[in-house]
């Protein structure tokens, strides 16, 4: 079966979506990712959507869900590289995806994930002291 590959980079998982996904493929990705987060004990997920030319409410919802689910699994998700036309269309569609963290590109997304993790860790240390 067709699948979107998930790369493991240290503590993080990286997904680059390059195909025009049909709905089931999007659902499979959601399943695979949540399973991977647990299996590899990942702290962060980076989803690169810079080659996506369109996001409709279904894919938008999948991205929101992945963010929420990863949170439950104690990992942060950052969606990176959304194209301007896609962003404008999503807003017009009525989706502002409030709970989703975003960054301009993979590099900035990685920085954001590290910051999130650092602040999480420092909170833990504070609690311990």
């Amino acid at each position: 079966m067709e699948r979107i590959p998930i790369l493991r980079m240290g503590d993080f998982l990286l997904v680059t979506i390059q195909v025009d996904m049909h709905d089931r493929l999007a659902m499979t990705l959601q399943d695979d990712l949540t399973r991977q987060i647990v299996a590899s004990n990942s702290r962060g997920v980076l989803i690169d959507i810079s080659s996506l030319e369109m996001i409709d409410s279904f894919i938008g919802r999948m991205l929101s869900n992945i963010s929420l689910m990863s949170n439950v699994l104690a990992a942060q998700t950052v969606v990176v590289g959304m194209q301007p036309a896609v962003a404008i269309t999503l807003v017009e569609l009525g989706m502002s995806m409030p709970g989703v963290r975003t960054a301009l590109n993979v590099e900035k997304g990685m920085m954001l994930l590290r910051e999130c993790l650092d602040s999480d860790d420092s909170e833990v240390e504070d609690d311990a002291s």
Binding site: V79, V80, G81, M82, Q83, P84, A87, I88, L90, V91, E92, S96, M97, V100, T102, A103, L104, N105, K108, G109
Partner: peptide, 12 residues
């Protein structure tokens, strides 16, 4: 308002 929201979706 839409522009600010769209910029946020893009990560800015």
């Amino acid at each position: 308002l839409k522009t600010v929201t769209a910029a946020r979706l893009m990560g800015a």
